[in-house]
Nucleic acid binder design. Sequence first.
DNA 1: CGGATTTGACCCGCGC
DNA 2: GCGCGGGTCAAATCCG
Length: 506
Amino acid sequence: MRIVINTLKISFYILCMCIFLSNYKKIVMPNEFFKIMLNSNGRSSSAEKKVDQSVGYQEVHSRDLRKESELDNAKAELGEVMEENARLKMALNHMEKDYHSLQLRFFDILKQQASKKAVNVAGHRIIEEPEELLSLCLGRSPREPKSDRETTASSNFIKVAQVDDGEENLKANLTLGLGSDETSLEEPNKNHAEAGGGEASSPPSSKTPKTMRNEDGEPPPQVNAKRARVSVRTRCDAPTMNDGCQWRKYGQKTAKGNPCPRAYYRCTVAPACPVRKQVQRCYEDMSILITTYEGTHNHPLPLTATCMASTTSAAASMLLSGSSTSHPGFDSTATPINGSEFRAFDNSRTQLYMPKSAHPLLPTITLDLTASTSSSSTFTSSLSSCSPSDSNNLPISWGNEYLRYGLLLSDKTQVGSYNLGKAFQEYFHQTYAEKIHQASSQVSLTESLTNAITSDPNFKSVIAVALSSMVGGGGDATHRSQGEGGERMGQQLKWGEAAHQFTSRK
DNA sequence: CGGATTTGACCCGCGC
DNA sequence: GCGCGGGTCAAATCCG
């Protein structure tokens, strides 16, 4: 397990470096070449013409020869650059393949572990847990056979759902989105809207909309089923965060405890898209915007939206796969994570919290993009100030080499047996924490190297931007085929921009 | 004029 | 059972 994770991480960084280098060359070298060409072909300028007329034939001839040799040199240089580009591309492709295979193996192992633990826990939990799982396939939604669903679903509700979703949904088997890809890891009861063919992965909220209720007015089964919500905290002056999607506001409420109104948005990219988001400003720090996403997009997303979707997808997956390893009897709602293990490798830069959930039913994970300074003090204050109700939170520190964002985990148990906090702690202890601990005891070359690289905040931000683009766009074959060259190119340009920013800051 | 936003009313789950 | 609060609806309004 550790080896796989280590290899994954190293591959990640190498991949980043390769992409960075290749894009940098692509962008910089043509410009240099262009300058050289301008210099060598500048004979047409009037000033130079005058000079040419005033010198003898020999001089002109020798100058032409010089320029030709310069041109040859430039051409040769260009050829070299192109060769190197090709080599880097090949290396990149190779890395990408390796990365994907490792990623697959990694998730296989995660799945296996989850299933092992599920076997060991109480029977009722075995039934419950799968519903909460999300896959990490970043938007791909392999659907369960329809028949499986129909056996568990209320027939009335299925009818309604099929009417609501329409044929569009029947066709779409792949989605890009927030990654609440429940079906890939079995969610038999949960979303009956999906039963119609795999779309609209979830009713947008725990409360079933009127249209989703059966004729008796009874909520469909599993209406209270827990789904992950991903909350993103960003510093943003605009009323909403530009996440690349199109949203339509459908409501606004002033929530208790926060005078700032909470706005409700629906995704309008596709008519039947179930994704909703809530946007609210932080009470204490108005510059912080809290955006909470819920649901899975049932349509291809633009590249920019894919970035956010991928990020939130990963977060949600982390949250929900962690839940599968939870232990009964641990109430995470009011109990801070026992941080002793984490403190063993505490570098006091990033902290994990277990706030009470903003939502009574849905586990929520919060990506805190405001903690850019990685300062534990600012992170703590921003959290406590923004969550007045979270008086029970205690910080847990962990190494931030492995985590770009501060992670806030919020979970509310339904019946008391659900224990996400412990699970989350275990999950990260198994994956990241142990590695950090290892690194401190057996400082390997690769660890030192990656730590050295990632300790640069500029580099990290560049990598974060680029990775989110890459993973978001590259993880989905459908999207790739739809996006085609244009988006691919855009991605590369983004890479180039990010890389350029990085180098220019240096 | 059509789409987006606003806003008061309504629904529903939860706690007491 | 009742009140509270979060979430949603839908008519009114705004805006390009």
